[in-house]
Simulated scan of single mutants.
Amino acid sequence: MRPVLRVLEVLSVLELASILILLVNLATVHVDGVASVLGPVHGALFLAVAVTALLARGLLARTRWMALIPVAGGILTLINVRREARR
């Protein structure tokens, strides 16, 4: 697997985990401290996925554009990265 695909895979998993934790927190106990910490972390991960996808060489256009979709970008990028790794 190319290094850029591995980086995108890790960042996408972390972004997906952060949004899931934020949504579970919102739907259940709604602890303000969790949102205060994970909100900016999720934002930074989203930007890291988007910038990495846009600047990386050799990625399909689909992978680049899917990385820019808020909330679903992490999982869509992860799916596309795994498809690209197989080809």
Rank of each mutant, 00 (worst) to 15 (best):
M1S: 08
M1P: 05
M1N: 04
M1F: 05
R2K: 11
P3Q: 14
P3L: 14
V4H: 12
V4M: 10
V4E: 15
L5C: 06
L5Q: 04
L5R: 02
R6D: 07
R6N: 09
R6I: 13
V7I: 14
L8P: 05
L8Y: 07
E9A: 03
V10E: 01
V10H: 06
L11E: 05
S12Y: 07
S12A: 15
V13K: 03
V13N: 03
L16P: 00
A17S: 12
A17G: 09
A17W: 01
A17Q: 02
S18A: 15
S18V: 05
S18F: 10
I19N: 01
L20I: 15
I21G: 00
I21S: 03
L22H: 07
L23Q: 05
L23F: 11
L23D: 01
V24S: 06
V24C: 03
V24L: 15
L26D: 05
L26F: 13
L26T: 11
A27F: 13
T28A: 02
T28V: 14
T28F: 13
V29K: 10
V29S: 12
V29E: 11
H30I: 01
H30V: 02
V31T: 03
D32L: 11
D32E: 14
G33Y: 04
G33M: 09
V34Q: 01
V34F: 08
A35K: 13
S36T: 10
V37A: 14
V37N: 02
L38C: 02
L38F: 15
G39Y: 12
P40T: 11
V41T: 08
H42V: 09
G43I: 10
G43N: 07
G43C: 09
G43T: 10
F46E: 07
F46K: 02
F46N: 06
F46V: 02
L47C: 09
A48W: 04
A48I: 03
V49Y: 04
V49G: 03
V49K: 04
A50F: 15
A50V: 15
A50N: 06
V51M: 06
V51T: 08
T52R: 05
T52H: 05
A53E: 10
A53C: 07
A53M: 08
L54W: 13
L54A: 14
L55R: 15
R57I: 00
R57C: 01
G58D: 11
L59K: 09
L59C: 06
L59I: 09
L59F: 14
L60D: 13
A61V: 12
A61S: 11
A61P: 00
A61N: 06
R62I: 11
R62N: 01
T63P: 00
R64C: 00
W65S: 01
M66N: 10
A67T: 05
A67M: 06
I69V: 15
I69S: 00
P70L: 12
P70I: 12
V71C: 04
V71R: 01
A72I: 15
A72T: 12
G74T: 10
G74M: 07
G74R: 07
G74Q: 04
G74F: 06
G74S: 07
I75P: 00
I75R: 01
L76G: 03
L76W: 12
L76T: 05
L76Y: 04
L78T: 04
I79V: 15
I79M: 07
N80I: 00
V81R: 01
V81F: 03
R82Q: 13
R82T: 04
R82D: 02
R82W: 04
R82P: 00
R83W: 02
R83K: 13
E84K: 03
A85C: 01
A85F: 02
R86D: 11
R87V: 14
